[in-house]
Amino acid sequence: MGALGVAIGAFGAHKLHDMLEKAGRLDTFETAVRYQFYHVLALFALGTLWAFRPELRSLSTPAWLWVGGILLFSGSLYVLCFTGITKMGIVAPIGGLLLLAGWLSLAWAVRSL
């Protein structure tokens, strides 16, 4: 997901910048990339923690919530930016809720550390 974020971000910044700006969607695109990277870094930290504490099986819940959140939140914004299908904007809040649920489930999982 990190490599994909770099590729999408670079493609948007170098090849689609003018199109995104003209369509008024540059901010939306940047938000999608930024939130993808925030959660890729969080997934990396979670994976590192899990490597040292494999007994913490409950860490898989926030990981899967973040993966789903990235796909729905950032993914729907990418589709909106690249295709102009505005109905995809309806999906973004669901992805946002998954990202939020991931953070809350992480807090729940590490409460006893």
Score class of each variant (00 low, 15 high):
Gly2Lys: 10
Gly2Val: 06
Gly5Cys: 11
Val6Lys: 07
Ile8His: 04
Gly9Ser: 12
Ala13Leu: 14
Lys15Ser: 15
Leu16Asp: 13
Met19Phe: 08
Met19Ser: 15
Leu20Asn: 03
Arg25Gln: 12
Arg25Pro: 07
Leu26Cys: 14
Leu26Glu: 05
Thr28Ser: 13
Phe29Tyr: 10
Glu30Lys: 09
Glu30Ser: 14
Thr31Asp: 11
Arg34Cys: 04
Tyr35Met: 05
Phe37Ala: 00
Tyr38Lys: 00
Leu41Trp: 02
Leu41Val: 15
Leu41Cys: 13
Leu43Cys: 07
Phe44Lys: 03
Phe44Ile: 12
Ala45Ser: 13
Leu46Ser: 01
Leu46Ala: 01
Gly47Arg: 03
Gly47Ala: 05
Gly47Val: 08
Thr48Phe: 14
Trp50Arg: 02
Ala51Met: 08
Phe52Asn: 11
Pro54Val: 08
Leu56Ile: 05
Arg57Met: 07
Ser58Tyr: 01
Ser58Asp: 12
Ser60Asp: 14
Leu65Gly: 08
Trp66Ile: 00
Gly68Trp: 08
Ile70Gln: 02
Leu71Phe: 08
Leu71Ile: 15
Leu71Glu: 00
Leu71Arg: 15
Leu72Ala: 15
Phe73Tyr: 12
Ser74Cys: 15
Leu77Lys: 10
Leu77His: 03
Tyr78Val: 07
Tyr78Asp: 02
Tyr78Glu: 10
Cys81Tyr: 07
Thr83Pro: 05
Thr83Tyr: 12
Gly84Arg: 10
Gly84Pro: 01
Gly84Lys: 10
Ile85Glu: 15
Ile85Gln: 11
Gly89Gln: 12
Val91Gly: 00
Ala92Lys: 05
Ala92Gly: 01
Ile94Val: 10
Leu99Trp: 08
Trp103Gln: 04
Trp103Met: 08
Ser105Leu: 13
Ser105Met: 08
Leu106Gly: 04
Arg111Gly: 00
Arg111Glu: 07
